[in-house]
Design a protein around this nucleic acid. Sequence first.
DNA 1: CCGTCTACTGGACTCGCGGTACAGTCAGCC
DNA 2: GGCTGACTGTACCGCGAGTCCAGTAGACGG
Lengths: 209, 209
Amino acid sequence: MLEKSRRKGDDTRERILAVAEAAVLAKGFAGTSIDEIIAEVGITKSGFFYHFKDKSELAKGMMLRYLAQDRVVLDQLFQRGDDLNNDPLHGFLVGLKLFAEMFADLPGAHPGCLAASFAYQDQPFNRDIRALNSDGILAWRTRFRERFEMIAEIYPPKQKVDFDALADMAATLVEGGLVLGRMLNDSSVLPKQILLYRDFVQMIFSGGK
Amino acid sequence: MLEKSRRKGDDTRERILAVAEAAVLAKGFAGTSIDEIIAEVGITKSGFFYHFKDKSELAKGMMLRYLAQDRVVLDQLFQRGDDLNNDPLHGFLVGLKLFAEMFADLPGAHPGCLAASFAYQDQPFNRDIRALNSDGILAWRTRFRERFEMIAEIYPPKQKVDFDALADMAATLVEGGLVLGRMLNDSSVLPKQILLYRDFVQMIFSGGK
DNA sequence: CCGTCTACTGGACTCGCGGTACAGTCAGCC
DNA sequence: GGCTGACTGTACCGCGAGTCCAGTAGACGG
């Protein structure tokens, strides 16, 4: 039928993950039934359990997929920021602007974050998921902190700042912004918060303006 | 047995809500079964459904209880800040410090937020819940914006700031901080973010220091 | 051409949980 | 003494997760 590039099943697995992601972002993990997923993918229940031994394995697969996409998108974004401006501070500020625009331009209003979706789920499957989640956040922290250290060499901040906390602030605002966006049904919350964060970073490293 | 102050059932209802809140914060709403709640409260299923016609009504009751508590706690906190310092900026900054300390001193590491717990749930019951949630957030926004306007009269900010967004930033950091706290299993994330927010507000209104 | 492996289909069945229905109970109040 | 509020107890339904297992179509290798 379609392409039969690598394995036959890889394609089905990928389709399950894609369908599941859309459903979970729209209705939450608990609110998404397997029956519903397989109906959309066009397979049977047995087919589903051939690929994932249970629902938590599905969640794990979704997280891995999500984090990989996430990493690629973020890399591209801040790379573009640096391409447009080779000063580490201004490259970062451009990256943040692009980041805000990305969230502003998202089609379906409020996508939400898979990670957060899982963070507020029950314990059992969270052992594994939480580890993945944790790694994802820690990657952000490291990436941003290293950037701040680079920036600080050129623009020494007037007052001392905890770079780890400042790095975490980005992820915090994204997660919180998505939550507020959902609550208020207003997708402009998150981009505005990112831009405020941008102002904050700018103030810290280059004073007033 | 105990007090029989108002009605007999008010006490039971309250106990259901209290038990449910603890369970939901620990395991998520979907992960909390009615059977489990009634076992702990010591009533039967019929008794439960006498008080709440379904699980979404329970959620609604929990939200109302939660928002009421929230309002009281916040009022007290910022009132204390103002009592200690009658300048609107410094009173607010003290309030934020108390706020951060409150989260730092919480016993069970990461309590999470009921509101966020529900924000990532499925659609159906969310119509009602979302409205409550929305009202809660909007109340924060108004409260903080009014405060910023008061502060700005005395400390005109160097650059123009969107007070609504700056107000939302507090709620955003709280929600996001709770999410990150859960993911990283680190309850120090949220207080640190609040203190960063405090620094930001201070920089906006009184420049460097 | 045969056997094996992958990627499923089909169907039957279990269990937990949300939710319904409804009859009965018991204590307090007018 | 009857009504109401706050339940108990039991039986039942449907949905969704998950299990078991038998069968099969197609690719692939010898």
